Simulated scan of single mutants.
Amino acid sequence: MDCRPSRTQDPNEWIATCPEGSRAVCEELRDLFFRWEPDLQESINSNMLCFNRHKRVVGLSGLKSHAQITFYRGGDLPDPGRLFNHGLENATIRSIDLPQGLEGLNQRALKALLHAAVELDAQPSLPKPPRPPREEWPMPSVLEEALQKNKAAAAFFEQLKPTYQREYKVWVSTAKQPETIAKRLNETIRALAAGKKWAQRKEAC
């Protein structure tokens, strides 16, 4: 998804000034979108050619080496053809990178995806899907070993909510130099033993 300032607000000029590596594909996709959903309206946003009804439904990015299709509510759409291959971790916006152009693209599946996106756009009052939960941050081995040696620190750490545990785990594990690791580890154990959350750790020094 291209977040640069738009080079133009004119869709025809946008197509004409796409990089050579994506211009023909973007032009063909534009024709397909209007053939499949003739009531769509065009606009330019964040240097993308967008196709709208109530809100933005789908957008095209013309990149140097390839084109990209972005569905603004892709996380809500059925994708039996498994076209989405970019932004799969996002709850809403998902994209299709086309490094090979339209060669090998399942156009029937893309057409169905576009129809579903337009139908979904007709229901703008639907609530946004919940954000996917963050993956648990792995426990640094040095912190785990230190907690095993300090019962008070370990007990307070265990009663902390996962969000507060994460702060300590991230802080310790993102240190790179041995002296930095040792310093943060010592501060962590001292703060935990004193019953302090990460934001309060300085109070235990």
Rank of each mutant, 00 (worst) to 15 (best):
A191R: 11
L60D: 07
R56S: 14
S173L: 14
V172F: 05
P5F: 08
E203C: 05
Q9H: 13
S61Q: 03
E89I: 08
V172S: 04
E135W: 01
D39E: 09
H66S: 10
A154R: 12
V172Y: 05
K64I: 09
D10A: 07
R166K: 07
R131T: 13
M48C: 07
F34R: 15
L98Y: 00
W171H: 15
R184V: 09
A193E: 12
A182I: 11
P138E: 09
K149Y: 10
V118L: 02
A117F: 01
N85G: 11
P19A: 13
P140R: 02
K64C: 12
I69V: 15
A194G: 02
R56I: 12
K149D: 15
Q100C: 15
R201I: 10
I44F: 06
K149V: 10
F71A: 00
K55G: 07
E145D: 11
D10G: 05
L114Y: 08
R190Q: 13
P78A: 03
T17G: 08
P130Y: 07
I189L: 08
K111F: 03
R7I: 14
L88H: 04
K55S: 10
A112H: 02
Q107P: 00
E203S: 09
W36I: 14
K151N: 06
A175F: 02
D39P: 00
K176T: 12
F157I: 06
R56L: 13
T17Q: 12
D2E: 14
D97T: 12
K151H: 08
E37V: 08
P124F: 14
A155T: 07
N186P: 01
A193S: 13
S141K: 03
K169R: 09
H86Y: 09
G21W: 08
C205S: 07
I15W: 08
G195A: 06
A194E: 03
P138V: 12
P80D: 08
L126M: 11
E37R: 05
L114T: 06
N150Y: 12
P178H: 05
N52T: 14
P11Q: 07
C26H: 02
R7P: 08
S6T: 11
L83R: 00
T70F: 02
R30C: 08
E145K: 13
D2R: 13
S141F: 04
A182C: 11
W171N: 14
R134Q: 12
V58L: 02
N52P: 00
N45F: 07
F156N: 06
P99R: 04
F34G: 06
A194C: 03
D97Y: 05
E13H: 06
L110H: 04
A194Q: 04
R82P: 01
P5L: 10
K161D: 07
S22K: 02
Q148G: 12
E203G: 06
S173I: 15
K196V: 09
P129V: 06
V57E: 00
V57Q: 00
Q123D: 13
D39Y: 05
G62M: 09
I15E: 11
E136W: 02
W14G: 03
Q107K: 10
F157P: 00
